[in-house]
């Protein structure tokens, strides 16, 4: 484990905690896309199929359980919680997200490192994660006004991806035979999707004004 990987995991963890904090304490999910959260839940479910069969470390197992548990509880909160679900902007969250899964599945069947069920599902989760943020970004564009916690949530998610790229660069130079084209290409695409958001996030931070995306 290198410092970039740890920083990536910690910003990922922080993003989830920020979102749970918003939902649990403020009892609001305003500005949050349920579609993106459902895709994340599917991403973790299909990626961690080896949770009980492939032990890597206590750290890995605990983090996997946290990401699985948090993603499903966030979906539950938005869909089922008596108070929280009332703050969900359903009309702004119209992305046909399940259609994103088909190209990811087809791509995973044809482009993978090994043609086994577990490996294809893992590859599917990598492709799906790359584009899972799209419904959230579309929703941001529509609502434009972004509250602090939502802004921080998306910033932390983007930071997590950026740290993972640094982690791969580090591992490429420090480990032998460390070449993973599938994760790298999908990961870079995923990070680029945050580019626009990052730009406006830093602008608002620099000028000390409220974050607002252009129409």
């Amino acid at each position: 484990m290198n410092i970039f990987r740890l920083a990536g995991d910690m910003t990922h963890l922080a993003s989830v905690l920020v979102l749970l904090l918003k939902i649990h304490t403020i009892k609001s999910c305003a500005g949050i896309s349920l579609k993106t959260q459902e895709l994340f839940a599917i991403v973790f479910l299909t990626r961690y199929l080896d949770l009980f069969t492939n032990f890597i470390s206590i750290y890995n197992t605990i983090m996997k359980l946290i990401f699985l548990g948090s993603s499903f509880s966030i979906v539950w909160y938005i869909r089922r919680h008596r108070v929280v679900r009332r703050s969900y902007d359903k009309d702004q969250d119209t992305f046909r997200h399940f259609f994103l899964m088909w190209p990811c599945l087809i791509l995973a069947i044809f482009i993978n490192e090994k043609f086994t069920l577990k490996e294809v599902m893992w590859t599917f989760s990598i492709y799906l994660e790359a584009i899972a943020i799209l419904p959230q970004l579309v929703m941001l564009q529509r609502t434009r006004n972004i509250d602090n916690l939502t802004g921080q949530y998306i910033f932390l998610l983007g930071a997590y991806r950026a740290f993972y790229i640094l982690n791969w660069i580090y591992r490429y130079f420090t480990e032998e035979h460390y070449v993973h084209w599938i994760t790298w290409v999908a990961g870079v695409i995923q990070t680029l999707l945050y580019g626009d958001f990052f730009y406006y996030y830093f602008q608002s931070w620099k000028n000390n004004v409220k974050l607002e995306l252009p129409a």
Partner: peptide, 10 residues
């Protein structure tokens, strides 16, 4: 890398 190495990330 081996399969385990490939999936040691989250």
């Amino acid at each position: 890398g081996t399969e385990a190495e490939a999936h040691d990330e989250l």
